[in-house]
Computed example of a mutant assay.
Amino acid sequence: MLTLALYNTYDTRRLHEAHLRAIARAGPIAYAFDFHLALVGFPLEGKPLDVAEKIAGNTTVGRGGKYLVELARNNKFHLLYFPRGGFPPQFGTPVATTRKPSEGKKITPLEVARRAVSGESFMLLVGLGRRGLPEEIFKLTQYHMDITGRGVSLETCTAIGAIPSKIRTLMEALQWKTDGQKNWRGYSSQL
């Protein structure tokens, strides 16, 4: 299981337009690349399906929130509290995404993909806000990953799109290489 987790560093007391835009944009990305979507520390209450339907009613992104609702219907949309000592284990190994991974905690997108193909689960955390992920999350996570491999700073929504697309593409390439598949997901061998 792969989870894209948006970590709220905006306002934790009141829902803002920035929250809604990021969630609306992340829904289709998670759906398209077969990721779960988790919201960490968002000021939202209710069951995931109810929250997804409410957000869907206020957006035109992702076919009017259709993909977010589909994630919720398939139990792939999660609402989490801020971690107190750790993230729920069912989401797998937490990975802080950053352009500056700590040397002792660095993991590459290829290594995440390789281990995911082998059945390991990862929760890839993206900081939603100007400050990105808080320092305590970098300490709490086992790994840090730079999706660009070049230390390039990405705008939050760009990172939300880049992370699942790169990990899934690497996974498909690894599976194609090892399984000898003739077709990649969504693409014919005639390319």
Results as ranks from 00 to 15, higher is better:
40 V>S: 05
92 G>Q: 08
122 F>T: 05
25 R>Q: 11
29 I>N: 03
101 P>E: 07
119 G>N: 07
26 A>S: 10
72 A>M: 09
169 T>R: 07
148 T>D: 14
109 P>Q: 08
174 L>Y: 05
79 L>P: 02
21 R>T: 06
34 D>H: 04
87 F>A: 05
32 A>Q: 09
8 N>Q: 00
18 A>P: 00
7 Y>K: 02
161 G>M: 05
137 I>G: 01
8 N>D: 03
56 A>M: 04
62 G>I: 14
15 L>G: 00
145 M>S: 14
10 Y>A: 00
191 L>D: 14
74 N>T: 14
79 L>E: 02
26 A>Q: 05
108 T>S: 15
78 H>W: 12
153 S>K: 13
20 L>G: 00
16 H>G: 00
110 L>K: 15
139 K>A: 07
58 N>F: 11
58 N>L: 12
125 L>A: 04
79 L>W: 03
3 T>A: 08
163 I>V: 13
41 G>M: 06
1 M>G: 05
157 C>T: 14
179 D>Q: 15
44 L>K: 07
47 K>H: 13
80 L>H: 02
70 E>H: 14
17 E>S: 01
82 F>Y: 11
67 Y>F: 15
58 N>Y: 09
1 M>E: 13
145 M>L: 15
96 A>S: 15
60 T>N: 04
140 L>Q: 10
21 R>W: 02
171 M>R: 11
161 G>D: 01
103 E>L: 09
183 N>V: 06
158 T>Y: 08
59 T>L: 12
112 V>W: 04
49 L>A: 05
32 A>P: 09
65 G>S: 10
123 M>G: 02
189 S>Y: 12
16 H>Y: 00
187 Y>L: 14
156 T>M: 13
90 Q>C: 07
62 G>W: 10
120 E>I: 10
112 V>T: 11
84 R>V: 06
45 E>L: 06
44 L>T: 05
14 R>W: 00
89 P>A: 10
96 A>F: 06
75 N>D: 15
187 Y>P: 04
115 R>I: 13
56 A>H: 03
168 R>N: 10
151 G>L: 13
38 A>P: 10
35 F>V: 09
113 A>W: 11
106 K>G: 04
62 G>Q: 09
109 P>D: 04
41 G>S: 09
35 F>Y: 13
78 H>I: 09
116 A>V: 03
146 D>C: 12
109 P>G: 05
7 Y>R: 02
172 E>K: 14
48 P>F: 01
53 E>D: 04
55 I>M: 08
83 P>F: 01
152 V>E: 14
40 V>E: 06
53 E>H: 08
98 T>V: 10
72 A>K: 10
31 Y>E: 06
3 T>N: 09
172 E>A: 12
39 L>N: 03
122 F>Y: 15
59 T>Q: 11
146 D>Q: 07
104 G>C: 12
100 K>I: 06
159 A>D: 03
17 E>F: 06
127 G>W: 03
33 F>N: 03
36 H>P: 00
6 L>S: 02
15 L>Y: 00
166 K>T: 07
98 T>S: 13
149 G>N: 15
103 E>N: 07
100 K>S: 10
69 V>C: 08
9 T>R: 02
94 P>F: 04
188 S>Y: 03
117 V>M: 04
165 S>E: 10
11 D>H: 02
12 T>W: 00
175 Q>R: 15
70 E>S: 05
163 I>H: 03
189 S>G: 12
108 T>A: 13
